[in-house]
């Protein structure tokens, strides 16, 4: 029952992402005015900026879930952190690739050793390492806690990447919307196209994370690594007081699949 509710909520989230994307694309490619100096290539910003925003939001999500894991909160926080990290890596790679295409047009080079570009590339490498760290063998509880520490450490790089354009002299332009003075120097229709694209990416990202968490949960329950609440079997062994281990404590709890059948 819980699962069918989750499926319906997920379907609505996915549908909302598609609807907003269908609105965002014509807004970005047709309705938004042509940039006076950059011309048409500026329209790539309506895909580049949302990708970077989604990556930063995903890495922020990894950090929050990492705190929950370290505080031993019950819930699928580790799975959410993993799914968000995957999303963040994909979006960072996309932002870098799109920025490179745009940079070749605007700057004449595919890559520059610029603080924003380097700090973003560092983010990408760090979270690829985070995902690699997660795949190392070991006790699930220890792997989760190790990943949580890494997720928190790497999160420091997110504000560095965002503020790099303000802290150092860069080729990359400073933020247009998320700037210290809350008066974005951008035409209203351009801002509308940008915010709609950001909303589409954010919704699609939330849909991916939610769906991926369900997928990871299913894999874990079928392999006996975690129960349906996302609690690692290994952690239960560590936390449980051996003296309190009675036959009653081994009572079988239904998995999500069993609940669904019921």
């Amino acid at each position: 029952m819980v699962r069918s509710w989750a499926s319906r909520a997920g379907a609505r989230l996915g549908l909302a992402a598609v609807v907003v994307a269908v609105v965002a694309v014509p807004l970005a490619l047709v309705v938004a005015p042509r940039a006076a100096i950059q011309g048409e290539p500026q329209r790539l910003m309506y895909a580049h900026v949302p990708a970077a925003w989604t990556a930063f939001a995903a890495f922020g999500c990894v950090a929050l879930c990492s705190v929950a894991v370290l505080l031993r909160r019950r819930g699928p926080y580790d799975a959410v952190a993993r799914a968000a990290a995957e999303l963040g890596v994909a979006m960072t790679a996309l932002a870098i690739a799109e920025g490179s295409v745009w940079g070749h047009s605007a700057w004449g080079v595919w890559w520059a050793w610029d603080p924003r570009l380097v700090s973003t590339a560092l983010l990408l490498v760090s979270y690829v390492a985070y995902l690699a760290l997660r795949s190392l063998p070991g006790d699930p509880e220890r792997v989760h806690r190790r990943a949580a520490v890494a997720g928190l450490v790497f999160a420091v790089e997110v504000p560095v990447a965002h503020f790099s354009v303000l802290w150092w002299r860069t080729l990359h332009q400073p933020p247009t919307v998320l700037r210290p003075s809350l008066s974005p120097p951008i035409a209203p229709l351009m801002l509308l196209a940008l915010l709609t694209s950001v909303a589409a990416f954010t919704l699609a990202g939330a849909w991916y994370v939610r769906r991926r968490v369900l997928q990871l949960g299913d894999r874990a329950t079928s392999s006996g690594v975690v129960d349906h609440r996302g609690v690692a079997a290994g952690s239960a062994r560590i936390i449980a007081d051996p003296d309190s281990m009675t036959p009653a404590s081994t009572t079988h709890e239904p998995t999500t699949a069993e609940e669904t059948r019921a």
Partner: peptide, 30 residues
């Protein structure tokens, strides 16, 4: 690359990445 080609390549990249992400979670029913 200039003009609309830059935009087309960028949006194509976005579509490929999102399609890959969607395929990851849709290939197996959760």
């Amino acid at each position: 690359m200039t003009g609309w080609t830059v935009v087309a390549v960028g949006y194509l990249l976005a579509m490929v990445v999102w399609a890959a992400l969607a395929w990851t979670v849709l290939r197996r029913r959760p």
